Amino acid sequence: MDLSDLAPLAGPAVAAAGIVYTVVSQRRKANADALAKIDERVGALELRMTQVTGRVDVLPDRDSAHRLELSLSEVRGELKALTERIAPIAATSARLQEFLLEQVK
């Protein structure tokens, strides 16, 4: 087999190689674009995850929430006691106001 016998096949072979190169480079570009989009999404998710983690770290834990609940129940009890103590004072104030209004007439 001589080199001159292969010469007619050189054109189609170069054309086929060009097509293969184009297809491979287009796939590479498509993959690079897809990876860029994925990288952008991962960056956005990392930012959101950092923000959420920062917010969660500030929240009270289970023990703190329980202590707050106990403190609130103590405050409610104290408010009920104060309400009971203020009731006679309010009644006295109302009677005093009525007495003063009668004195003005």
Rank of each mutant, 00 (worst) to 15 (best):
M1Q: 08
D2L: 09
L3D: 06
S4K: 11
D5E: 15
A7E: 10
A10G: 01
A10Y: 02
A10S: 05
G11N: 07
P12N: 02
A13T: 09
A13I: 02
A13R: 07
A16S: 09
A16E: 13
A16L: 11
I19F: 10
I19A: 14
V20M: 10
Y21M: 10
Y21D: 13
V23C: 04
V23R: 11
V24L: 11
S25H: 09
Q26I: 04
R27I: 07
R28H: 13
K29H: 13
K29A: 14
A30L: 10
N31R: 14
N31H: 08
A32C: 07
A32Y: 10
D33M: 09
L35I: 05
A36P: 01
K37R: 15
K37Q: 15
I38P: 00
D39R: 11
D39P: 00
D39K: 13
D39M: 05
E40T: 10
E40H: 09
R41C: 06
R41S: 11
V42R: 09
G43N: 08
L45W: 05
E46M: 07
E46Q: 14
R48H: 13
R48A: 15
M49C: 07
M49L: 14
M49P: 00
M49S: 12
T50N: 08
T50K: 11
V52I: 13
V52Q: 11
T53S: 13
T53D: 10
V56Y: 01
D57I: 03
V58L: 12
V58D: 12
L59Y: 02
P60L: 01
D61R: 00
D61Q: 01
D61H: 00
D61Y: 00
R62A: 14
D63M: 03
D63T: 04
D63N: 05
D63W: 00
D63A: 09
S64F: 03
S64A: 15
A65G: 02
R67N: 12
L68M: 15
L68H: 12
L68T: 02
L68S: 13
E69D: 15
E69I: 04
L70F: 01
S71E: 15
S71I: 04
S71N: 14
S73L: 11
E74L: 06
E74M: 04
E74Q: 09
V75W: 06
V75A: 11
V75C: 04
R76C: 04
G77T: 02
E78L: 09
L79H: 06
K80W: 06
K80A: 14
L82T: 03
E84K: 06
R85G: 01
R85N: 07
R85F: 03
R85C: 02
I86D: 12
I86G: 01
A87V: 03
P88R: 01
I89M: 12
A90P: 00
T92D: 15
A94S: 12
A94L: 08
R95H: 07
R95Y: 05
L96M: 13
L96Y: 04
E98A: 11
E98F: 01
F99S: 14
F99R: 13
L100R: 08
L101M: 11
E102C: 03
E102I: 01
V104Q: 11
V104A: 07
K105A: 11
K105H: 13
